[in-house]
């Protein structure tokens, strides 16, 4: 009897309908998450499955060996990638941070508009085009491939990422904080350097790491700049090895051993980039507003 009364009550019927809709949507969202996650799991899974066995300490430190000779690793490529990404970061970091500070501080200004527009356009330019640019600017005049050209290509890729990310985190610094500095009679540049940048420091660190890990995975801009090298070559005027280049060269080779190593190198690269992103994320989380 009681149940009948409930069914007749329109409020309760409406409530049931809503609960049903709620559940349907929950199922749909969970399914969408699954669809999004599936490729990630598949990619990481296959890389781990095929690469994990070959990743040994020796693989990480030894250099490339000729086909047929057992052993060999990607030590030269890790060192080369570190050199390329590190020097690109040293070039793009200061410029990117300075540009980001400028963008965050000025809104309606023609120069700011131009800087922001060029950063956005540059972010959208395919990385291979940036590689061609570095090729034209450094490789052609110097007449050979070099780490320098690779550094330029990566720096050009990283600069807009750092600038826009810095702009974002600097904007998140509460305005009251910079006003407190201004109200004490400090000049704008001092407030920027001594109040705003320290407050945004974790975020700027995250921007740098994020840009670096993005650059560490780039292959196209390095193919005709740093070119790659089977040796531990750290002379920036010579061709330099890089992990993505090793993956590319080994993966397209006809040798089973090299292809195994390509999978292993892919796993190492994945782990490095993932670690970079995680560190970058945790820095952002730590910069929680008061």
């Amino acid at each position: 009897m009681n149940g009948r009364a409930e069914e007749r009550d329109p409020a309760i019927r409406r409530f049931r309908r809503r609960r049903l809709a709620d559940r349907v949507f929950l199922v749909l969202t969970v399914a969408s998450v699954g669809v999004v996650l599936a490729p990630l799991v598949a990619v990481v899974g296959s890389v781990v499955a095929r690469g994990a066995a070959a990743v040994t300490p020796e693989f990480l430190v030894s250099v490339s060996r000729p086909v047929g000779e057992p052993g060999g690793g990607i030590g030269h490529a890790l060192a080369g990638s570190a050199l390329l990404v590190g020097s690109a970061l040293a070039v793009a970091g200061p410029f990117g941070i300075a540009a980001g500070l400028f963008l965050a501080g000025t809104r309606r200004n023609r120069i700011a508009w131009a800087v922001r527009a060029s950063a956005d356009v540059l972010t959208g330019v395919p990385s291979i085009v940036v590689g061609v640019f570095a090729y034209a600017v450094l490789v052609v005049p110097l007449r050979h491939f070099s780490g320098l050209a690779g550094t330029l290509a990566l720096a050009v890729l990283m600069w807009p990422l750092i600038a826009r990310a810095t702009e974002e985190v600097v904007r998140m610094v509460p305005r009251e904080l910079s006003e407190a500095g201004l109200a004490l009679g400090a000049r704008n540049w001092r407030v920027a350097l001594r109040v705003v940048v320290p407050a945004a420091f974790p975020g700027i660190g995250a921007a740098l790491i994020g840009a670096a890990s993005r650059a560490a995975g780039e292959t196209a801009p390095l193919m005709f700049t740093a070119f790659g090298s089977p040796f531990l070559a750290l002379d920036p005027t010579e061709p330099v090895a890089a992990v993505p280049l090793v993956i590319f060269n080994y993966a397209v080779s006809p040798y089973d051993d090299w292809r195994r190593q390509a999978w292993a190198a892919a796993l190492v690269l994945c782990v490095l980039v993932l670690a970079g992103n995680l560190v970058s994320r945790s820095l952002i989380a730590r910069r929680a507003p008061r």
Partner: peptide
């Protein structure tokens, strides 16, 4: 601003 100091609505010490 050196002669005229200011205290804001919400406490804003430099973190």
């Amino acid at each position: 601003r050196r002669r005229v100091g200011m205290v804001f609505q919400r406490p804003n010490p430099f973190p």
